[in-house]
Amino acid sequence: MSEPILSLRGLNTHIAQYHILHGVEFDVPRGQLTMLLGRNGAGKTTTLRSIMGLWRASAGEILFEGRNIAGLSTPEIARLGIAYVPESMAIFADLTVKENLVLAARNGPLDGARLDWLFGLFPAMKRFWTLPAGVLSGGQKQMLAVSRAIVEPRKLLLVDEPSKGLAPSIIANMITAFRELKQGDTTILLVEQNFNFARQLGDSVAVMDDGRIVHRGSMAALASDAGLQQKLLGLSLDAHQ
C-alpha cells in the first residue's frame, strides 16, 4: 500500500486554556474516502481546523505527503492543495455564486469543462450564477461551499458535515459528487454524524471520542458490526434509519 497522503501523529490542540485534542493519530490513505466519526464535541471539527492551521497544534505532527505542515499558515496549507469546507459553510453572502467560485479558483480563470461538470452535479449553481450567495437556501449554500472547494482539482478535501440539514435528494447528489471526485484522484476526509451517509461513502474510518481516536479500520467492517457501532458511536444502524 502506498504512503498515506495525510497522517496525524500525536496531535495535541489547545483552545485558550482548554486542552481539546489529546494525541490524535490516524492516516488518510491516498485516493480513498476516510470518514471521521464521533459524537458531538468529540473533537472532529477541531481536528480538521488543526490540519487547516486555523487552530495551532500545540504538539505532534501533521504530515501531508510526508512533510510536517503543523506550524504553516493557513494560506500556505491551502496552497499545498488542501481545501476545506467548514460546517458553517462560510460562503460569502455578499458575493454572487460566480464571484464565490472565481475567488476559489486560485490558479486563474474558471475552467469551462470543470464548471460544466459542477453544474451537472449541482444544477442550482448554474441557475443562481449571478445572484448573491446570501439568497440561496441552506442546501444550495452547502452545494456552493463544496463547489468552491472543488472548482479546481485539489489533492485533499476536508469536509465538515456536508449532510447536515440537507434534503435526501440533495444528499444523494452530494454522495455522487464525492464518488466522482474520488475517481478523479482526490482524497477526501469527511466528518460526519449521519452514519447512513458515512456508510455509503467511506472506505476507511476513524472514530473519535473525547479528543482521542478510539477506533481505526475499514468502513465495511464497522458497517457490518452493530455491536461495535453501539460501543463506539452509541447508536445502532436500525435506530438511526
Binding site: 491551502a78 481545501a83 455578499d94 458575493l95 475567488l103 486560485r106 468552491r148
Partner: peptide
C-alpha cells in the same frame, strides 16, 4: 479579484485564508 477578496475578507477572513490567500 482584489476587490472580491476585500469584500470576502470583510465577511469572513478565516475562509479567505482557507482558500489560500494571505489576508
Amino acid at each position: 479579484k482584489l476587490g472580491l477578496l476585500i469584500r470576502a475578507g470583510v465577511e469572513n477572513r478565516e475562509m479567505v485564508e482557507s482558500l489560500g490567500y494571505r489576508i
